[in-house]
Design a protein around this nucleic acid. Structure first.
Lengths: 342, 342
DNA sequence: CGTGTTGCTGTAACCGCTTTCAGCGACCAT
DNA sequence: ATGGTCGCTGAAAGCGGTTACAGCAACACG
């Protein structure tokens, strides 16, 4: 049974029609008379014909797939991002490549290689140097996800300045001083912006500048490590603003494990509003960002840009503070939601 | 400027050689005289020629990419799995497609579609029905990841029976009774096997059969929910065996949040040995499985199988109990490691 | 009846690369 | 001198689709 999958030409011969007609029927384009369509369909059905993606890709000059590039994949954030992206990609029949560089050496090359196989690429902030990004962008349409936009590379990101509102809340509403920030501003544009907003809020509130950030990663385990750094010494900060929820959760676990009370001994806030944030005790005060929507918007931008050189535009999705107990509030408050501006 | 990327023919014309020679030079196969190679290389360099993956794919009849299919992506488990898989795939220059079905309707179709674009596919247990899997497998080489093997579909998995050893430890070494199991045996083959091993250990220890498992998902948030279910009532279990670490961690957080002491009031164990397991207080007793290796082995199997129909074999990676404080042990013990059997 | 339309179909030229096979000097052994 | 490798090169035939273009019959209109 050495019968491989049938090709258009074989189907055409069997159905006694031309390849053009088979193609027209199989992809539903152009004019085909009912009886002809019927005949071709029957043969296609009988022989289980499915057009080869390779042949199609070559003829149409498009791969039919898009890629996402991340520094890593750990945590619910990436999972949500991918989910949002994938759902939009699926909608247009594109499949999704994923590359997690893990800051591997030679990641740049891998991204280039991948660029040869896709119609568009979403690169997460903090993954590639500007230079590497530019090189990729000249091969394939790129949109930056959670990063700064560049020349011809649009960006989709969330409004990180809201962490400033949270900081103001801590500073003025609760009257806390000695706030610490956990997260590495050099690690990703997101953290950079959050750190800047954190500092700006201090200036705006006219309190002395915060100390240097505790430069750690964004995983739960980093939060636990942060607890060791921050909560052991005698000058424990009154509140800790974490660059994301995972870190905040880790910190919370570390604090509780040390017998500290949150928020009485130390207040904690995060960023993202992941599911766990509202499940822990005390519940986590944070900033909600529409992660899945972020992924979906990125995919849409990439796919639409795929057609023609449409208006290259950035998108900034709105975020909102979510005040729960971990900051010292007793009743949940959510600030009025703000419209999405693109 | 309307200059697209150069093609083989253009390069050939410019370098005054045949396309065959350009192809030979660019892919480093066959015999080419030094001066000819030099000449071609120079033109390739100057014009920035990079062979089109589409053309190549069609000619070689291989896509140059492999896929992984999961039910979801949340948690460090999948992240590690992907990392292991990706590193092996990269090694042979293949890029990685990822599809998370999220139990979406129509996922079956999407997997089929994806199957048309890749040279091989790893399907995680609990993602597809046997029937759907079979349909996919007749289109493209498949290996099951963390699931049961089938007809022509090899499987790579970890030894789940070790959770039985852990159960025995709880039952006999610590003398606990009233153990609960958290995890949905119908959700994935992994959980099925763990639940079976849990039950088997009860039989072996000649203690009465455990009550029905608490059927929840495998995320941290599910663990928190489990805490609500299990720890509130008057007949609280003495120990809880969770299907994975994430759930155990969530349960631990829930228990601590309720003011319970672990392991004094309730002992908790997990499965995976994720980084957080050794960072929480008390540290989590668990079963270590080589997740990354699982991913890497899967990739290797897929890629080697890609060549010819080599011996279709299963692989079972060894796991080992890691006894820490959450089960009631006071000093860390790791059972002697067992060799890997494939 | 001549002349457009309209609707459908088929031929053949791509898309960009790989690879077989034949050809052609140069070199070696007879 | 002759036949047989050996090393290198190029022409051309795919790989499996899509689609521009031409052709043809049927039909409507003046």
């Amino acid at each position: 049974m050495g019968n491989r999958r049938p090709t258009v030409r074989e189907i055409a011969k069997i159905a006694q029609v031309s390849v053009a007609t088979v193609s027209r029927v199989s992809r539903g384009t152009g004019q085909v008379s009912p009886e002809m369509r019927e005949r071709v369909l029957r043969v296609i059905e009988e022989y289980g014909y499915r057009p080869s993606q390779m042949g199609r890709a070559l003829a149409e000059q498009k791969h039919g797939s898009v890629a996402m590039v991340f520094p890593g994949l750990a945590g619910p954030y990436f999972s949500e991002l991918i989910q949002g992206f994938e759902s939009e990609a699926m909608a247009v029949g594109a499949s999704v490549h994923i590359l997690a560089t893990h800051h591997r050496a030679g990641a740049g090359e891998q991204v280039l290689t991948m660029a040869e196989r896709v119609d568009g690429m979403a690169v997460h902030g903090g993954t590639l140097s500007d230079d590497a990004l530019r090189r990729v962008a000249e091969r394939v349409p790129v949109v930056t996800l959670a990063g700064r936009s560049m020349d011809g590379v649009p960006a989709v990101r969330a409004d990180n300045t809201t962490i400033g509102e949270l900081t103001r809340h801590l500073l003025l509403d609760h009257g806390y001083r000695r706030l610490a920030f956990v997260g590495n501003p050099d690690g990703s544009p997101d953290v950079t912006e959050r750190w800047e907003a954190f500092k700006a809020a201090h200036r705006a509130a006219k309190v002395s500048a915060p100390r240097e950030p505790l430069r750690l990663g964004l995983q739960q385990s980093d939060g636990v490590i942060a607890a060791g750094e921050l909560l052991e010494g005698r000058r424990r900060p009154r509140a800790v603003v974490c660059a994301n929820d995972e870190t905040a959760l880790g910190l919370l676990i570390g604090a509780l494990g040390r017998g500290l009370s949150v928020p009485a001994d130390v207040a904690i806030t995060g960023f993202d509003d992941v599911p766990m944030a509202s499940l822990v005790q005390p519940r986590l005060t944070t900033v909600r960002q529409p992660i899945r929507e972020l992924g979906a918007t990125t995919a849409r931008l990439l796919i639409s840009g795929l057609g023609g050189p449409g208006a290259v535009m950035d998108a900034v999705l709105a975020t909102e503070p979510v005040l729960r107990e971990s900051c010292g509030c007793t009743t949940t408050r959510r600030s009025e939601s703000k419209g999405e501006r693109t």
